[in-house]
Design a protein around this nucleic acid. Sequence first.
DNA 1: AAACGGGCCAACCGCCGGCGT
DNA 2: CACGCCGGCGGTTGGCCCGTT
Length: 288
Amino acid sequence: MGRSPCCEKEHTNKGAWTKEEDERLINHIKIHGEGCWRSLPKAAGLLRCGKSCRLRWINYLRPDLKRGNFTEEEDEVIINLHSLLGNKWSLIAARLPGRTDNEIKNYWNTHVKRKLYSRGIDPQNHQPLNASAAAATTAPPADTVATISNKKRNSDSISNNNIQLVNGTEDSNCSSGVTTEELTFNPHNQLNLDLSIGLPTNQPTVSSSTMKPENNKKLKQEPQILYKWYNGNNVNTTQQGVCLCYGLGFQSNNKACSCKAMGTAATTVTATIATNNDVCRFYQPMSY
DNA sequence: AAACGGGCCAACCGCCGGCGT
DNA sequence: CACGCCGGCGGTTGGCCCGTT
């Protein structure tokens, strides 16, 4: 069962946006900021669905968008992240400043796929084409393994063959544990993916021994706490930073993993080992 | 010059999760 | 706990553009 439409179908324009509509939208957001998309069209004098306004703004009108061709570096980042995340375009876009999920998705479908095919790589599972054909009969494609389904995103843990997903593990070096999704792919080596947005230091933490479902639930609501923390008294905001982590590496038992830090604004990178569960972690404080 | 076909990309659609009541 | 609203996401579509015949 689908939801009812977000707006009345009648009396709304569809299709390509006119220059005048763009200007109305830009002016409205300049004055009022990004607020309630549902009420925006009426307030801005637009005969458009709120979702349409949002999409137009995010994908086309936003001032921080980087227009133009993708660079080789961006290509490689997209390929690497897609091999880990699958079609999670919004997550991939989060690592490419100025690029939108829609743009990356289109670029993937029109350019990168072809590029990978020309390299003899199956874009679905990032395996050599001939090998992936053989593997298809014996193992699930990488997309199946590496994709965190939206439908399962809230599960505290999921075991599916060699995949284990843990949400909000507070023993991460990202002390906030605000949003952490770890993916442990464990055929023989462990391929670890750690994507998180959090606070690198000074954030109240919960010991793993006290970690219970209700605590986990509490952690998921912490973006509100984060906001207060940054804006509250007695906090020197110049010393704080949002921690944007991305870790990838193969690890061997009890040895430092070979995590490769990605991102350009890193000031330090710390790699550690979690002795309990063989999950490697690091955090990468980002200067504000 | 016209017709055709493929590529590209902005926009739409349907669904989902979070949140407030 | 149930329900409805809203924002966000990924998949798909439709129309424009451009190269080829």
